[in-house]
Amino acid sequence: MIQVSKLSKYYGGKRALGPVSFEIDDGETVGFLGLNGAGKTTALRILACDLRPSAGAVNVGGIDALGDPHEVRKRIGFLPENPPLYPEMTVTAFLEFAADLRRVAKVDRKKLVNEAIDVTDLGEVAEDPIGNLSHGFRQRVGLAQAIVHKPALVILDEPTRGLDPKQIVEMRKLIHGLKDRHTVLISSHILAEVSQTCDRLLILGQGRILGAGTEAELAAHEGNVNLVSVTVRVPPSSGEPYRDGEADAKKTIASVLTRIDGITEVGEPQSRGDGWAVSLTSAKDLRAEISRAVVQAGLDLLKLDYARSELENTFLRLVDTGAPRAEA
């Protein structure tokens, strides 16, 4: 569907993107993940034929985007960070306008607009002026205009930006619904978002691709580190002495945890309510060993969980390292 080769974009002398190369297959849902300023929006705007790259080649659906951007635009739907809307128009009138711009035949227009309204669940506000809608509804109208002409490629730049948690869940459902019908590109700096919606990830940092693949592939390739958070309580009756308040409690916890095989780092215990929270780092999953050691030492185990998801670990390590990958 998309082949990108040595793509770069400079603003004046400042590099915003690249050079990056990657390919995206038909029907894939791919997430562009990166911190703010990583080059995600620049990459998406180039793919949407809004920005001309400084160098490199982009091919969308077999068409050279630099040679014939007009033809590529017929095949894409783009939802930018701020949806391009006309507040004075009703939702239906706006979607009809968007469909007309995308060369939808007049006989199909009504049907496609109704489909887009159904898919994005806009029926209750279909005849309302866009200016009267909440942010969540406007975002849905933005999504509806991006899919109204049934494009082969849908590009969504931060689609859940500014939405409340309920609206985020609803938007994710809508995006899931697109997967069967379109190739979808999503940019986000929210890990959970791309993790839950995308088949494959491209991690961008400082305009370069730092990693690419499925979540599992990325974790495996980067040799993931497990960061576990454990919260324990030291009862006075525990086997370890508990004589001198906080200092003794911390010593007791540290001595129990550092004895566990495979733990590479034990953080400073932090007071949490009636217990102590400690961060532990290990090369593999040691949650079972940790819980056993804590209980056998006579401590109360209050909580044990990953402090960060695997994707979070991978992402942060890639961004911190900052070394670009040649191919993606």
Binding site: R73, I76, P80, P84, Y86, A98, L101
Partner: peptide, 14 residues
């Protein structure tokens, strides 16, 4: 100013 130009810019319109 409002960003709605992006709809025109990314549509097949001369």
């Amino acid at each position: 100013q409002t960003g709605s130009i992006l709809l025109l810019n990314t549509s097949p319109v001369r």
